[in-house]
């Protein structure tokens, strides 16, 4: 039978080792999947993504490119990084922040007719303002902090 104090230390040591291991594994996991969360349209067009792989693409929704099917939840839109553009097809409910000009990150696979997404997430930029300020800026015909290009992360 182990002394209570020794057993306590064993348990704590076990928790400690597990905790540090998990932390390192998490880091390795994140690294393994390529620390960059997503590829840009330019990278996709340039063929940097492994054929047939499941990956994330990030870009800006091109104005006027959103096409919805009135009968079901199918939708398609173009993502751009101002250099190249990729068409994304998605079936499902889009996040609230989805709109033209918004930063979007889609998870899925590249197919013949475009990128088929299983998940669509919306980025939002680092700007915070009330609606009337946003309206005023738009009215003054200046782009309010246009969503940043995807390369470099925000």
């Amino acid at each position: 039978m182990m002394r209570a104090s020794r057993k306590r230390r064993l348990v704590i040591a076990g928790v400690l080792v597990t905790g540090v291991s998990v932390a390192v594994l998490l880091t390795l996991l994140a690294l393994r999947e390529n620390i960059n969360l997503f590829y840009s349209p330019s990278q996709v067009v340039a063929g940097e993504v492994v054929e047939g792989s499941y990956f994330r693409i990030g870009g800006m929704v091109v104005d006027g490119s959103v096409r919805r099917n009135p009968d079901d939840l199918q939708v398609s839109f173009d993502l751009t990084d101002t250099a190249e553009t990729v068409t994304v097809h998605y079936s499902g409910i889009l996040p609230d922040l989805f709109r033209e000009g918004q930063g979007i990150v889609a998870l899925g696979r590249l197919e013949d007719h475009g990128f088929r997404a299983d998940q669509v997430l919306a980025k939002h930029d680092e700007n915070y303002m009330p609606p009337e300020v946003s309206e005023a800026l738009k009215a003054a015909n200046r782009q309010p902090y246009a969503p940043a290009a995807t390369g470099g992360g925000s």
């Binding site: 969360l37 930029d125 995807t150």
Partner: peptide, 17 residues
């Protein structure tokens, strides 16, 4: 610097930039 060094979902700095 994670939001600057890599592509992330999380947005960049608002105040400390």
């Amino acid at each position: 610097y994670s939001v600057e060094w890599w592509n992330t979902l999380h947005q960049g700095a608002t105040i400390t930039k």
